[in-house]
């Protein structure tokens, strides 16, 4: 198990290198000079040329790439062209905001998705099954920005239950320690703010969780259906075990492997793919951080931002693989 983990970690190096290479080539292939974007429409030619030189953009592309790799090997993610701040310092608040939101979204997606899938399989072809699967279909195909705006309109404006935007009450802002606001408010003993932060998480959490929720529900259902038709389930029922135990204990455990795969992949996707939700809900997350960097041709931020997300993505996949072994003793890694 340990050797497997180490081997997997080592194979990450070529994967990440390849990814850096692809991202680097892609962003340098698109036209648009960052110096020009930074200095605006008013800028003079001299200013653009001077800034390009300053940013090292006048060097040949392979030299720029080697410089960047060297920098990474020194543990330096680089400096934002636009704000001049070191990316390693700048990125964490954004990443923390997205991680917090993604975790909440995944909890919502898993709790509702898995249970909806189980019940649909349990009562296959019942009205619950039909409605749940129809909703899942709608959920998968829902445009998030529309869903987000509708949520805002319904729950925040019409019923006045929840806030529309941001991570905290703007008039009573959270003092950041770790930038994970749920944790920060608890550390400071500000339970009023803790509740406020939860309120701010609900709407974007649901918006972001909708698609994974629908996918998880569908996978759980089909996986459960397969397991529930197997012999050992029939035996369990024949022994006289209650339906609930048969479904939630005996079937679920065996049906979980594909579900966990999907959960792992979806969690990774949320980290980078939360941009629409972040835009609608004024969430200062990593998706909008990188998006803005792309608009401004802030090359170091794009590269390092994607690198960070990709690293988390592959790490989550590793964790998922290791979880298989924990759930199913038949799976062993050597």
């Amino acid at each position: 198990m340990l050797t497997y983990t180490i081997r997997r970690l080592v194979t990450l190096i070529p994967v990440l290198f390849g990814m850096i290479l692809i991202v680097f080539s892609l962003i340098h292939a698109i036209p648009g000079n960052p110096a020009k974007v930074i200095l605006g429409q008013q800028a003079t030619k001299e200013a653009v040329a001077a800034l390009s030189k300053d940013l090292g953009l006048d060097k040949p592309i392979h030299i720029q790439f080697i410089d960047y790799i060297k920098q990474l090997l020194h543990g330096d993610l680089g400096e934002s062209i636009r704000t001049k701040a070191p990316i390693s310092e700048e990125i964490w608040p954004y990443l923390a905001a997205t991680i917090e939101l993604s975790i909440v979204a995944m909890i919502i997606a898993i709790v509702i998705g898995v249970n909806a899938g189980i019940i649909s399989a349990w009562f296959q072809n019942s009205w619950f099954d039909y409605i749940a699967m129809l909703l899942a279909l709608i959920g998968v195909s829902m445009p998030i920005f529309w869903l987000g705006l509708m949520e805002q309109y319904t729950f925040a404006i019409h019923w006045d239950l929840l806030p529309t935007t941001g991570r905290d009450n703007i008039r009573d802002p959270v003092e950041a320690i770790t930038h994970l606001y749920l944790l920060d408010t608890l550390l400071q003993g500000r339970f009023d703010q803790f509740i406020e932060v939860i309120k701010h998480l609900i709407l974007p959490g649901f918006a972001l969780g909708t698609i994974p929720m629908a996918i998880i529900a569908r996978i759980t259902r089909s996986s459960m259906l397969e397991v529930m038709r197997s012999d050992y389930i029939r035996t369990a029922r024949a022994k006289g075990l209650g339906s609930f135990w048969v479904v939630y204990k005996h079937s679920l455990k065996n049906a979980l492997i594909p579900v966990i795969t999907v959960i792992g992949l979806q969690t990774g996707l949320l980290l980078g793919g939360a941009i629409l939700t972040e835009t609608i809900f004024g969430w200062p997350g990593i998706g909008s951080y990188i998006y803005e960097a792309i608009q401004n041709r802030d090359y170091p931020v794009i590269q390092s931002g994607i690198l960070v997300i990709a690293s988390i993505f592959v790490l989550i996949n590793l964790v998922v693989d290791l979880l298989y072994a924990a759930i199913d003793p038949r799976i062993k890694y050597r």
């Binding site: 805002q152 404006i157 006045d160 529309t164 935007t165 703007i170 972040e278 004024g282």
Partner: peptide, 21 residues
Amino acid sequence: VIIKVIKDNSARLNALVKGEV
């Protein structure tokens, strides 16, 4: 004075209607 970023135009108006800004 607090100057706040809300990227989407409609979402920003929603926040005003709600009284958050």
